[in-house]
Simulated assay, not measured.
Amino acid sequence: MKISVTILSRMPPERSRLVLSYAPENFEINIIESSAPIDLQINACKDADAIILGTPNIDMSVLNECHKVKLLQTLSAGYEELNIEAISKIGIPIANNGGSNAGAVSEQVLSIALMLIRGTLKHWENAKEKKWREGIRDLNFGELGNKKFGIVGMGPIGKELAKKLQGFQCEVSYYDINFLDPITENELNISRTTLNNLLKNSDVISLHIPLNEKTYHFIGKNEFLKMKKNAIIINTSRGGIIDEIALLKALKEEQIAGAGLDVMESEPPKENDALLELNNVIITPHMAGVTSESNSRSALFAFENVNRAIAKKEILSVVNTKELLTYRS
């Protein structure tokens, strides 16, 4: 049986080729730019059995014409740009990438943490400027090993990060609205704590929560005041989770020691963004989850999930289950 799948994306050609290389033989794939006019998007999507989003956004006027679609599948972990309520009302399940980028993002967190704690960028700048070994005796640099590491959000990325931190013998605690089962906590050698305790006790804090009304500016002035003076905060989730004005103040006034940001409230940041000028901040251009390996995993996951939807099997990583149940009852 032929399955019609439309991929709505602004992916570069090389990633499109990679994604297509994992498509099952019975899939008829139609790729259209997400910036294409709405009428062209409707024409490309209206007869599709499933839509895969390279960029997690689609106009409702397109979906309202898609009466055959059984799944809206993103290649990304984030989905905050989608109108979940409206999409649920027309009965379309939405699934994200199921943690396909967890390995990549967790590695980026460790990379940023190590660079900040070891002062790698400062040493690199000194070496380029021929200031060999300058400042290395100041003892302002440390080790990640045995540090207290706090993870906010224990989804696939948080769990993968906890697993990797075992090699550093860190004392890992986590905060999540849900409890992990005791077996998983024991396997990952982690313990659940309150947000206040995590903020007060952690040397490194890493954020892995979705952006929504409840998590907007989840970390702000009051949270920074609770942190250690030597604390580092890392955000690879979404920019709006941290109040950047409060972060700038906390860094300038040395309330905390440093920050690592793969995401920002405005992307790209404004040219005069003061965070770009600080030497205790590492900023990367929203690339933590982008590797050839994670792209391959997300493509495989997407096509397998489409197969599940068509076969009326349980769809994995659905993000609007509760809303669908509400509107279908």
Rank of each mutant, 00 (worst) to 15 (best):
R297P: 05
F27V: 14
G98W: 03
N222W: 01
E134Y: 10
A299Q: 02
F168K: 13
E171K: 15
S191V: 12
Q73Y: 09
G142F: 14
N186H: 09
I31M: 14
G158F: 09
S206A: 11
G91V: 07
V306D: 00
A48E: 07
S88I: 01
I242Q: 03
G153I: 05
I283E: 09
R328F: 13
N101I: 05
E265M: 10
M1F: 10
L324H: 05
E85A: 09
L275T: 11
N305S: 03
F141D: 10
P13C: 04
I177K: 14
R15H: 10
G289R: 11
N272L: 05
K46E: 14
E253G: 06
L316P: 00
A250W: 04
I117F: 08
E125M: 09
L248I: 04
N235T: 13
E244T: 04
L195A: 03
S206W: 00
I219T: 01
G153S: 09
K46S: 11
D49E: 13
F141M: 12
E25T: 08
L325C: 07
R15A: 10
E187N: 13
V204I: 15
N96Q: 02
Q41F: 03
S35H: 05
N97H: 01
N101P: 06
D273I: 04
E80S: 10
T284C: 04
L261G: 05
P93M: 08
L276S: 08
F141N: 10
L247E: 06
K2I: 14
T215M: 02
S296K: 15
E125W: 07
I94D: 00
I157Q: 01
E107K: 11
K249R: 14
E25L: 13
G260I: 09
K89W: 00
K159E: 13
I92L: 06
K214G: 01
V204N: 00
F179S: 15
S106P: 06
N235W: 14
I209A: 02
K130Q: 14
E253A: 13
K221D: 15
A113E: 04
E129K: 15
S202D: 00
Q73W: 07
E33Q: 09
A127Q: 12
L161D: 03
I87K: 04
A302G: 02
R192T: 05
M1D: 12
D47G: 10
S111N: 11
E171I: 15
M60R: 12
S100A: 15
N96M: 02
N97K: 00
R297W: 06
S21A: 14
S34R: 11
